[in-house]
Computed example of a mutant assay.
Amino acid sequence: MRKLSGIFLVGLCLGATGAVVITAGHSSAAAPRQTAVSEVVATTSETPTPTAAPKTEAPASSATPTAKTAPGPAGVEAGTLDGIMRDGTASAVVFDTESGKTTVSVRPDRGYTSASIVKLLIALSVLDQGGPVADVQRMLSRSDDDLASRFWSSYGGPAIVTRWATKLGLTGTRPPADPGRWGDTRITAADIVKVYRYLLDRKSTAITNALRDATERGSDGFRQYFGIPDAAKGQDWLVKQGWSCCRPTRMLHTSGVVGHVIVVVLTEHPAKVDYVTGSKRVTEIVSKLLG
């Protein structure tokens, strides 16, 4: 396992965040029993493809906000993402914690089904109420669905989402239509950047340490090093990933911190695009964002 290579660098005075310099860990993961949430994958290959009927999720809204684009260091804009995706839709936001500025903003307010990204809000709720730190960290680093379901039931369910949306000013985040399906929470890239800014500003080390130690495979066997981990090899990073399929589309999300920048990429693919192909596309987008 790669160990923490640095510490929180600087507390920002811009009312935003501090930055962290961290790396990830590696471990094997056993497939969990099925849960009534949104992530499901095969466990038999390095780049898995589902072998059983996947769990479903609520489809994305048909009303997609107009793309807002702030060219980044590599000139990343909507056309760049669309060229990589070819079909489906991607949103990306990059926030520089040193300058306090957003350097890339493509479709920041477009809504997506969260998959496991909502575990960040679940973790905040559990820790805020004095819940078990070790289990929270396991839920995050291994993306453990069973623990997430247990916490969701015990610490407020949909109220977890509404509470933190209000507290952090998350304008595009809302609870799932089915209150039992935490993975169907609605999120936006702009809102997830706000969550990371809060974590860094508050120096929430219980959470950031878990994200630093994200295992290569989740508890369901899925290889969760697509996106930020694969694109930022050799750099310090922390991540929370999300994947789900298919009612009617496939979601693949990567979010986290690379050095002093927060990176969030949310993607929605037609179900015909498999996890392997979708993962490569997400990694290519992050590579463009990191320049």
Rank of each mutant, 00 (worst) to 15 (best):
V258C: 01
G180F: 00
S45V: 04
R150I: 05
K288R: 15
A210T: 00
M85P: 01
P32I: 09
Q129R: 13
R202W: 01
V193I: 05
T173I: 04
L127G: 03
G18Q: 05
R110S: 07
G130K: 08
H260S: 15
V94C: 03
A16M: 06
V133P: 01
L170C: 11
R142W: 02
K272F: 02
G79Q: 12
R212W: 00
A67R: 01
M139T: 06
P175A: 07
A214C: 06
T277M: 07
K3E: 07
L238R: 01
G291D: 12
A19P: 01
K272D: 13
L4D: 02
F8R: 10
K272V: 07
S62Q: 12
W164M: 12
S5R: 13
A53F: 14
A74R: 08
C245H: 09
D82G: 04
L266C: 10
L170R: 03
A92D: 04
P175K: 03
S287D: 12
S114P: 12
G83R: 12
K280H: 14
C246E: 06
A30S: 12
G72R: 05
G218R: 11
V276G: 07
I187H: 06
L140M: 09
S279I: 00
F8T: 07
S5V: 14
V37W: 14
L147Y: 04
K101T: 12
D82F: 01
Q235G: 00
L168I: 04
L9P: 11
I187A: 05
D230R: 15
C13T: 10
G157D: 15
E39A: 14
V133C: 03
R107Q: 09
C246L: 11
E57N: 14
C246T: 15
T277G: 04
S204F: 06
R223C: 02
V276H: 06
L9G: 10
S45P: 02
T254N: 02
A92P: 01
Q241D: 12
A29H: 08
D87V: 14
A214T: 13
L266H: 10
V161G: 09
L211V: 02
A165V: 04
L238G: 03
L168W: 04
A42Q: 13
